[in-house]
Amino acid sequence: MFIETHLGRVAPGECDHLGHMNVQFYVSKVSDAAWHVMAFIGITPSFIRERRQAPAAVRQEIAYLRELRAGDLLRMDSGVVEASAKRLTFYHRLTNVESGQVAMTSKVYTVNMDLDARRSTPLDPAVLAAALERLLPESAL
């Protein structure tokens, strides 16, 4: 299931010399959205601090579909598309609120990391169960 993970607008300072939102700000919005979708399945900031584990991004695929300009209103919806013992894949969809057009999609592949040992570790069973229960259907992508 999708959840809203960002609601905002394109600030003039986020635009490049062509007048479009610069790619670094798309990635920044995805990074911020990741914290909300992780919390949705139980990986909250306190969980990370207490358990000393968190998903680490190892690969990201981005599709830029429509230009965004200063003042455009944005909504990011996110969800989990894959979940296994040590891996989660998150999907993000950034929409221009006024036009309803999807401007960008992103798939972020992660490996659950032990933050002290700096190596992969199994997901907490409750987190894995929540992720599997809330998987986005293929038809939603």
Rank of each mutant, 00 (worst) to 15 (best):
I3W: 12
I3P: 00
G13H: 15
C15W: 05
H17I: 15
L18S: 14
G19F: 05
N22M: 00
V23T: 13
Y26D: 05
S28L: 09
S28E: 14
K29P: 02
V30A: 15
D32Y: 13
M38W: 04
A39P: 09
A39M: 06
G42M: 02
G42W: 13
I43K: 06
P45Q: 12
S46T: 11
R49P: 02
E50V: 05
R51S: 12
R51D: 07
R52A: 07
R52K: 15
Q53V: 02
V58W: 01
V58R: 05
R59N: 12
E61V: 04
A63W: 15
E67R: 00
R69V: 02
D72V: 05
L73M: 10
L74H: 15
M76C: 08
D77H: 10
V80P: 02
V81G: 15
E82T: 09
R87I: 03
F90Q: 01
F90G: 03
H92A: 00
R93P: 06
L94G: 05
T95D: 02
V97K: 06
V102E: 00
A103Q: 07
A103E: 02
A103C: 07
M104P: 04
V108P: 00
M113H: 02
P122C: 10
A129I: 01
E133L: 07
P137Y: 13
L141C: 09
